[in-house]
Computed example of a mutant assay.
Amino acid sequence: MLHLSRLSRADWFGPLLATILAILLIQSFSASFLSAYNIEILLLAIAVNALVAYSQMVIIAIGQMNLSVGAIGGLAAISFAGVMEVWGLPAPLALLLALAIGALAGAVNGILIRITGISAFVITLATLSIFKGINLGITEAQPFYGIPESVKSFGASILFGPVPLLVLPTAIVTLLLWLMLRRLPMGRFILAVGSNEHAAALSGISVGTTVVAAHAISGLLAALAGVLVVARLQIGQPSIGDDWLILSFAAPVIGGAILAGGHVSTMATLLGVVIVAIITQALVLFSIDPFLVQVVLGAMILAAVGLNRLRARTPLKGSH
């Protein structure tokens, strides 16, 4: 009984229970919900959305927010597609360039926040506009169609059964993030800065370096998400990333992240992504108006924040 009580307090327990209940409920109304085709569609959405959520989660961990997640992902995506079409760059080099652009854009956010002392909200709101403007300047609002067959093949390939190959990079990133937050010094520094920036500085942690590193990691993850979207769509759309912002907050918050910082959970955030994907897919299956997806996401964020505030009465710092 004591073990079960401790288990129920884990960040991932609630989202896991909600995921199982949602699957059982939707399956009872629609027998096709767990068909191979639907599972593949769900996993494709999860593969991209998990990276978007992780990109925000890392910033929430330091007690900040990144409104430019989608703009960075979109800029990396069109850079990835553009250099392959215009310059004929091989896909691996284009990937490295796109990831470097994402990490650099994220680092710029972190540097500006530390140098100016202006809140992350204001800085990333400004860079959102800048990065999106660069995106539109490069593309002139037109897609890049010259995606190599190797990239198209990667985006369309199946790993096994209904599991798409796009899931593999996300699975690797999930494991690496979990290890970073639980085992590596950088993960501990990020959580310490989020818990108490002043105490972290007194204990010898370089707060400035940690903030810049967190934003660089965030930009890198957003860029990888953008690249996966290009591979999935087989086209470099200037609009990639435009609708990521709400999702990027929804999944970590559903996963128990404390917006003030210092406490996030990789596994619970992943389950938050799964819950959002399941609800979105259910609305499609039942032919419900798409605008309700945004309504449901907003309601879920409010509910999750409310539950987190109740749990904060017995706070548990750290990550799982």
Rank of each mutant, 00 (worst) to 15 (best):
A120M: 05
V122C: 08
V122W: 05
I123K: 03
T124E: 13
T124D: 13
T124L: 13
L125K: 07
A126K: 00
L128W: 14
L128R: 12
S129Q: 14
S129W: 08
S129M: 15
I130D: 03
I130Y: 01
F131N: 07
K132I: 03
I134W: 10
N135V: 09
T139H: 10
A141G: 04
P143V: 01
F144L: 06
F144Q: 10
G146C: 03
G146W: 05
G146K: 06
G146E: 05
I147S: 11
I147F: 11
V151N: 14
V151R: 10
V151D: 10
V151Q: 13
S153W: 09
F154D: 00
F154K: 01
F154V: 05
S157V: 02
I158R: 15
L159V: 08
F160N: 04
F160D: 03
G161Y: 03
P162D: 04
P162F: 02
V163T: 06
P164Q: 01
P164T: 00
P164D: 02
L165M: 15
L165K: 08
P169R: 08
P169Y: 08
T170I: 04
T174I: 10
L175T: 12
L175G: 12
L176R: 02
W178H: 15
L179F: 13
L181D: 02
R182C: 01
L184H: 07
L184A: 13
L184Q: 11
P185F: 05
M186K: 04
M186C: 02
F189R: 13
F189I: 02
F189T: 06
I190D: 03
L191D: 11
L191Y: 09
L191I: 13
A192H: 00
G194P: 04
S195C: 09
H198D: 14
H198T: 15
A200Q: 01
A201V: 04
L202T: 06
S203L: 07
I205R: 00
I205D: 00
S206E: 09
V207E: 07
V207R: 05
T209V: 10
V212Y: 01
A213E: 09
H215W: 10
A216S: 15
A216G: 11
I217C: 12
I217M: 15
S218T: 13
G219V: 13
A222K: 03
A222N: 08
L224F: 07
L224E: 03
A225Q: 00
L228Y: 04
V229Q: 15
A231V: 09
A231C: 15
R232L: 11
R232M: 11
L233D: 06
L233P: 02
L233I: 11
I235T: 15
P238C: 01
I240Q: 04
I240K: 07
G241D: 07
G241W: 05
D242V: 06
W244F: 15
L245M: 12
F249K: 02
A250F: 00
V253Y: 00
G255F: 00
G256Y: 00
G256F: 00
A257E: 03
A257L: 00
